[in-house]
Design a protein around this nucleic acid. Structure first.
Length: 897
RNA sequence: GGGCGCAUAGCUCAGUUGGUUAGAGCGCUACAUUCACAUUGUAGAGGUCAUAGGUUCAACUCCUAUUGCGCCCACCA
C-alpha cells in the first residue's frame, strides 16, 4: 500500500529529478546496433541567440513524442540535437552588447570581434538547450552539434569546393537584396515582401531637342533617378512611337539619356514610359544589359547617396528622396504625387527596407540541384504531411532562382576562396562604379579546402582570403549528414542516415527543407528524410503570430512552472490539428493540468487499494485462466481498442487525435465508468489484476506525451524495473477486444443515464433508492442484462430492479424508451402529465419522419446495390428499433391520458 | 496577378474515403460533496454545419459560384 502520493500532482518536485535520472543512466544515448533498425530525427537547430518560445515547445514536443514512441517500439533511435550559429542574428546581438560599451565591431577588428562572439556563445548559447531539457526532450546530448564546430566547417568548405569544381558556384555582379542596416547581401528568401503605403511620383524629363516638351515617367523611388541611364517605352505604344531613339536631359544631373523601346514595358501602368536605373532595379538591370546601358550606382552600402549622386552625396536615401522631389517641384518637373501601395522586401532579421543593389556576390546555380529534389518528392520518396505543402514545395522548386550565398558580415563560415594579388585579382567591390561587365576577375581565384601557401599559378605568397562569409543556410542545409561528421563515412552516418522524419514549421520550407533535400541528394546521393511533418504556426488567441515585438508571448517556461511540463505538452498537442495553426491562451493549459491531476489521483486511488501480491501475473495468461466478468472484459476491450487507435494515429502523424483518444479513454471510460463500477469489488483478484494492468500499460502509451508524470507513477508501481522509457510499447492483444461486450456495457450505461435523467425530470430525490421495472425486448436482452444488474443498481441507486414482460404503464408510473428497452419508474411528487404527453408526441413525430426517410432509402435499388452490406444491415436494424420505439412511446402516451 | 488555407454550439476547434439523433474542451445553468480527484461528479440548455446552386436514394462531407477572414509566392516601375 502506497500512501506517499499527495492529493495533488506536483510537477515541480519531480521533473528535474527524472530528467537527471534519464541523463545519468544514458537513456537518450544512441549507438548503431545492427540487430535493430534505426529511427533518427535531426532537430531543427534553434539559433544560439534563441530563447524557448511556444513554436519550439510545439516543434520539440512533436519530435519527442515520435522519438519516445519509436524507442518504445524497439527502434534504435537517435534524436540529434544542436544549435545554429545564425550569422546575422548573432552578430546583431553581440554588436548590441558592444554598443553598450560604446564600441563598434570595427573598433575591435575582425579577429577580436569573432572572439567576442565565441565568448558570448559560451556564456549564453546553451540557454535554449537547457530550456529544451525542461521540456523533456530526449535528445542524445552527447552528440550536441553547432553549425560553427570545426568538423562542421570542414563539411561546409567541402561542399563549397565540390560545387565550385562542378561549376555550380560562381561569382558575379547582379542586382541582389541589400540590407543597408546589416550592410550585407541577402538571398531572395531573406527579403520578406511586405505591403507598404508609398507614393507614385510623376516626373517630367525634358527632351534635348525641345526643352519645352517632356516625357513623363512614374516612379516609387524618385531618388534612384540620379542613376537613370535611359527611359523605356513599349514599341507598340502610339503615344511614344515618335520619341523612340530621341535624347532626354536627365534633370538635376543634366545627363543625356536615350529613349529606348522594349516590350517589357507595360503601357497601362503609370504614364507608359518608365525610367531605367540599371544599378538599382532588377528589371532595369535586365534592360540595361539588353540595351547595353551604363550602370550608375548612386547609393552607398549604408543607404546614403554616394559620390555619383553629386550634390546629394551623403544624404540618407529617404532624405534625398524628399530633397529631390522638392527640387523637381521647384523646377516645375514634378507633375503629381499619387498614393500608391507597393510591396517591397524587408530584411528578415532587422526589418529594414532592403535596397535592390548591384554588387558582386557568390551564387549557387540551383536548377541542376533542384531537378533530382523535385523528382524525389514527385515519386513519393519524400512525403509531406499535410500533403498540401508538397504543392508549395514543388511550385518553388520549379521556379527556383540562383542562391546568393555570400554575406558581408564577420560571423559565419569564411568563404574558402583566396585571391592572388600577382594574378590581378579584384575582390568584392561593392561600392565601385560599374563600367564594364566583362572583367578578368576569375583569374587568380583559388578555391581550396585548406589555406594555400602560395599561388599555384605564379607562386606568389601574397594571398588574401575573401572577406565574406557564407549564408547561414549554406551550413544548415547540410544538417542531416554534417552532424554525423560527413564527409567522413563513419558507422554512425551509415547507420542513422537517412533520417526518418523532419518536423518543422512552414516558414522554413524554402530556407531549409527544400535545400536539405537538394544537399542530401547531391552530396549523399540519398534523400535526407522520408517524411516531412509541417506543423502550424503558434498564434495568440486573436490569431496574431506570437512575437516579442507584439508583446503577445506566452512563455512556455512560465507555463511549465505554473502547470508543469506534462500539462504544457499535452495541451499544446491536443489542440494542434494536423498542420493547422495553433491559437493559444493561458487557459488552454488548464486542460492539461487537470488531466495530469486526474491521472495522478486515479493512480493514487489504485495504488491505495492494491495488493501487490495479486497483480504479479501475466495478463494474457490470467485472462485465459480466469473467467472475467463483463465489466473487466469491457475495460480490457476498450483499452486495446484505444491502444490500436493511438498507434495508428501516431503512425499517421495525427498527434492531436492520439492525445484526445488517450484523454477520452482514461477520463471518460476508465475513471468515470470502470473505477466507479469496480469500487464494490475492488478487492477481488480479477479487478485488482485488470485495474493494475491497464494502469501500467496505459502509462506506457501515455509516456511519449507526458513523460514526467508517467515516470513518477511508474516508479511507484509494484514490481517496476528501470525507467518507463525502457519499457516496450504494449502489444496489441486482439483476443481481448470484444465488440459485443462493449455494446452490452454501452447499453448498461444508457440505462443508468436514462434513469438518472428520469429522476431529474420527475424531481425525484437523487439520493433515494427507488424501484425500477425493465422490459427487455427479447430473451437475449434479458440474459445480458441480468449480469449487469448489480452494476446498474449500484450506480443508478436502484433499490429493486424488476423485469416485467408487458409494456403496460400503470397510472402512477412513468416510462422511457431506450432502444428496444422499456424503463418504468414510479411517479413521485407532482408532475405535469400533459407536458410529458406533449414531449412524447413530439418524439413520435420526429421518429415517424426519420422512419419515412429510412424506408425510402432502404427501398432504393441504387442504395442496395452500392452500399456495403454492413451498412444496409445496420440501417435495417435501426429501422426495426425505430418501429419498436414508436410502439412503446404510443403505449406510454396512452398510459398518461 | 498567381497559389493555398479557413468559415460547424456563446468562445476555441475536431469530424478518416458521402451513411446512427453532427462531437470535444472552455464558458453558462441546476444539482451533488466527510467517498482517489472542486484542478471533482451527474445532468441540462445551446447548431438551418458561411450563402446560393448542382450531383446523389442520401451531403457538414463531393462539384460550381458568391461572401468574409487569414497565409504564402510574384520584377508591374
Amino acid at each position: 500500500m502506497s500512501e506517499e502520493l499527495s492529493k495533488q500532482y506536483n510537477p515541480k518536485e519531480i521533473e528535474d529529478k527524472w530528467y537527471k535520472y534519464w541523463e545519468d543512466n544514458n537513456l537518450f544515448a544512441a549507438k548503431p546496433a545492427l540487430d535493430k533498425s534505426s529511427y533518427s530525427i535531426v532537430i531543427p537547430p534553434p539559433n544560439v541567440t534563441g530563447a524557448l518560445h511556444m513554436g519550439h515547445a510545439l516543434n520539440n514536443t512533436i519530435q519527442d513524442i515520435l522519438i519516445r514512441y519509436q524507442r518504445m517500439k524497439g527502434k534504435n533511435v537517435l534524436w540529434m540535437p544542436g544549435t545554429d550559429h545564425a550569422g546575422i542574428a548573432t552578430q546583431n546581438v553581440v554588436e548590441k552588447t558592444l554598443a553598450k560599451e560604446g564600441l563598434k565591431r570595427q573598433d575591435l577588428g575582425r579577429d577580436k570581434f569573432i572572439e567576442r562572439v565565441w565568448q558570448w556563445k559560451e556564456l549564453y548559447g546553451s540557454t535554449i538547450i537547457r530550456q529544451l531539457k525542461k521540456l523533456g526532450a530526449s535528445c542524445d546530448w552527447s552528440r550536441l552539434r553547432f553549425t560553427m564546430d570545426c568538423e562542421y566547417s570542414i563539411a561546409v568548405t567541402e561542399v563549397f569546393v565540390r560545387l565550385y569544381e562542378k561549376k555550380l558556384i560562381y561569382r558575379g555582379t547582379y542586382i541582389i537584396n541589400w540590407c543597408p542596416r546589416c550592410l550585407t547581401a541577402l538571398s531572395d528568401e531573406e527579403a520578406a515582401h511586405k505591403e507598404l503605403q508609398g507614393s507614385l511620383y510623376y516626373l517630367k524629363y525634358p527632351l534635348k531637342d525641345n526643352p519645352k516638351e517632356f516625357i513623363k515617367v512614374a516612379t516609387t523611388r524618385p531618388e534612384t533617378m540620379l542613376g537613370d541611364t535611359a527611359v523605356a517605352v513599349n514599341p507598340k505604344d502610339k503615344r511614344y512611337k515618335k520619341y523612340i531613339g530621341k535624347i532626354l536631359i536627365l534633370p538635376l544631373m543634366n545627363r543625356q539619356i536615350k529613349i529606348i523601346a522594349d516590350t517589357l514595358v507595360d503601357m497601362e501602368f503609370g504614364t507608359g514610359a518608365v525610367k531605367v536605373t540599371p544599378a538599382h532595379d532588377p528589371n532595369d538591370y535586365m534592360l540595361g544589359k539588353k540595351h547595353n546601358l551604363e550602370f550608375i550606382n548612386v547609393l552607398s552600402p549604408d543607404g546614403t547617396m554616394n559620390a555619383a549622386a553629386e550634390k546629394f552625396c551623403g544624404l540618407d536615401r529617404f532624405i534625398a528622396r524628399e530633397k529631390i522631389v522638392e527640387e523637381l517641384r521647384s523646377m516645375g518637373l514634378l507633375e503629381k504625387i499619387q498614393p500608391h501601395t507597393l510591396s517591397a522586401g524587408h530584411c528578415y532579421r532587422c526589418h529594414t527596407l532592403v535596397e535592390p543593389y548591384l554588387s558582386k556576390q557568390w551564387f549557387v546555380k540551383m536548377k541542376p540541384l533542384a531537378k533530382p529534389a523535385i523528382a524525389a518528392v514527385k515519386k513519393g520518396h519524400i512525403k509531406f504531411h499535410p500533403e498540401r505543402w508538397q504543392k508549395v514545395y514543388l511550385n518553388w522548386m520549379e521556379n527556383i532562382q540562383d542562391w546568393c550565398i555570400s554575406r558581408q558580415i564577420w560571423w559565419g563560415h569564411r568563404i574558402p576562396v583566396y585571391y592572388c594579388k600577382e594574378c590581378q585579382v579584384g575582390k568584392s567591390q561593392i561600392n565601385s562604379k560599374f563600367k564594364s561587365q566583362k572583367s578578368k576577375i576569375e583569374n587568380g581565384v583559388i578555391v581550396s579546402r585548406t589555406k594555400p601557401d602560395k599561388c599555384p599559378k605564379c607562386g606568389s605568397i601574397e594571398l588574401t582570403q575573401d572577406e565574406d562569409v557564407l549564408d547561414t543556410w549554406f551550413s544548415s542545409w547540410l544538417w542531416p549528414f554534417a552532424t554525423l561528421y560527413w564527409p567522413k563515412e563513419n558507422a554512425d552516418l551509415k547507420y542513422f542516415y537517412p533520417t526518418a522524419t523532419l518536423v518543422t514549421a512552414p516558414e522554413i520550407i524554402f530556407f531549409w527543407v527544400a535545400r536539405m533535400i537538394m544537399a542530401g541528394l547531391e552530396f549523399k546521393k540519398q534523400i535526407p528524410f522520408k517524411d516531412v511533418y509541417i506543423h502550424g504556426t503558434v498564434r495568440d488567441i486573436e490569431g496574431k503570430k506570437m512575437s516579442k515585438s507584439l508583446g503577445n508571448i506566452i512563455d512556455p517556461l512560465e507555463i511549465i512552472s505554473q502547470y508543469g511540463t506534462c500539462a504544457l505538452r499535452f495541451s499544446i498537442i491536443s489542440i494542434t490539428a494536423c498542420g493547422q495553426d495553433v491559437y493559444l491562451s493561458k487557459e488552454k493549459f488548464e486542460q492539461g493540468r487537470n488531466f495530469a491531476n486526474k491521472i495522478w489521483n486515479a493512480s493514487r486511488f489504485i495504488l491505495m487499494n492494491l495488493n501487490p501480491d495479486d497483480v504479479a501475473v501475466d495478463l494474457c495468461v490470467f485472462f485465459k485462466q480466469e473467467k472475467l466478468d463483463i465489466v473487466n472484459r469491457w475495460i480490457l476491450s476498450r483499452f486495446y481498442t484505444t491502444l490500436e487507435k493511438v498507434g495508428k494515429e501516431l503512425d499517421n502523424f495525427k498527434f492531436n487525435e492520439a492525445a484526445n483518444s488517450l484523454y477520452a479513454f482514461f477520463w471518460h471510460e476508465f475513471c468515470d465508468w470502470y473505477i466507479e463500477l469496480a469500487k464494490p469489488q475492488i478487492l477481488e483478484k480479477n479487478t485488482q489484476v485488470v485495474m493494475f494492468k491497464i494502469l501500467e500499460k496505459y502509462l506506457r502509451i501515455l509516456h511519449p506525451f507526458m513523460p514526467f508524470i508517467t515516470e513518477e507513477i511508474w516508479q511507484k508501481l509494484p514490481g517496476a524495473k528501470g525507467s518507463i522509457m525502457q519499457q516496450t510499447w504494449p502489444h496489441l492483444q486482439n483476443e481481448l477486444i470484444n465488440k459485443n461486450d462493449e455494446e452490452q456495457m454501452q447499453l448498461a450505461f444508457d440505462i443508468i443515464n436514462t434513469i438518472r435523467n428520469m429522476r431529474q425530470e420527475l424531481e425525484v430525490d437523487l439520493t433515494s433508492r427507488i424501484e425500477i421495472k425493465l422490459t427487455p425486448a427479447n430473451k437475449e436482452g434479458r440474459d445480458s442484462l441480468e449480469q449487469l444488474i448489480p452494476y446498474i443498481k449500484n450506480l443508478a441507486k436502484i433499490e429493486n430492479l424488476i423485469f416485467s414482460e408487458k409494456y403496460i404503464v400503470q397510472k402512477n408510473e412513468y416510462a422511457c424508451v431506450l432502444k428496444n428497452m422499456h424503463i418504468v419508474m414510479p411517479l413521485q411528487g407532482i408532475v405535469d402529465a400533459e407536458e410529458i404527453y406533449k414531449k412524447n408526441q413530439a418524439k413520435i413525430d420526429k421518429l415517424k419522419f426519420e422512419i419515412k426517410n429510412k424506408e425510402t432509402m432502404l427501398a432504393n435499388k441504387d442504395f442496395l446495390g452500392r452500399a456495403p452490406k454492413e451498412i444496409v444491415d445496420t440501417e435495417k436494424t435501426k429501422l426495426n428499433d425505430m418501429h419498436q420505439q414508436i410502439v412503446k412511446l404510443e403505449a406510454i402516451k396512452n398510459g398518461l391520458r
